[in-house]
């Protein structure tokens, strides 16, 4: 179910055996991910449940279950910004219907990043995934 971008990412991560290299890669992805316009950093886009500040701005093209899902996002923490970029690879370009079918913990486990979903709940990856799924689900049922 994963996007091509995520499959590429998973391939890259296969060559990164220790956490330091994986983090370095995540951080680099965060640095390369375009920041959000300050004007859209508003309560509606803010994701609660994150220890650092996180904003997710959905971009949905089309109508109904086949509408195409995309989003912009930013965090004031660099690792979290990198995780947003990872989620972008995971979800961007899917139909809103397919967003709900992605098994995020399983996919992130392929990158060795799944511990962010359980133990370190405070970094907000779980909250971000929930926000993305909820937004897509709402769009699919309009």
């Amino acid at each position: 179910m994963a996007t091509e971008a995520f499959e590429e990412l998973a391939e890259t991560f296969e060559f990164l055996d220790d956490w330091e290299d994986r983090y370095r890669h995540v951080i680099d992805m965060g640095k390369a991910f375009p920041p959000l316009d300050d004007a859209v950093k508003v309560p509606a886009t803010k994701v609660d449940g994150c220890a650092s500040q996180v904003w997710i701005l959905p971009r949905i093209e089309g109508q109904g279950p086949e509408a195409q899902f995309d989003f912009e996002g930013e965090s004031d923490a660099m690792i979290v910004r990198g995780l947003i970029a990872v989620l972008h690879a995971l979800y961007a370009g899917l139909s809103v219907k397919d967003v709900g079918a992605v098994d995020a913990p399983a996919e992130l486990a392929r990158l060795g990043l799944n511990d962010h979903l359980s133990a370190q709940r405070s970094n907000g990856l779980r909250a971000m995934v929930e926000r993305i799924r909820k937004t897509a689900q709402e769009a699919a049922t309009v």
Binding site: Y23, A51, S52, D76, A77, M78, I79, V80, N123
Partner: peptide, 22 residues
């Protein structure tokens, strides 16, 4: 630079060092 306190504590944790961030 740009590293947030949470970034630092996350990396320190990976090295076994427990600090508070916030």
């Amino acid at each position: 630079g740009a590293a947030h306190a949470h970034d630092i504590s996350t990396v320190l944790d990976k090295k076994g060092v427990a600090v508070r961030a916030g």
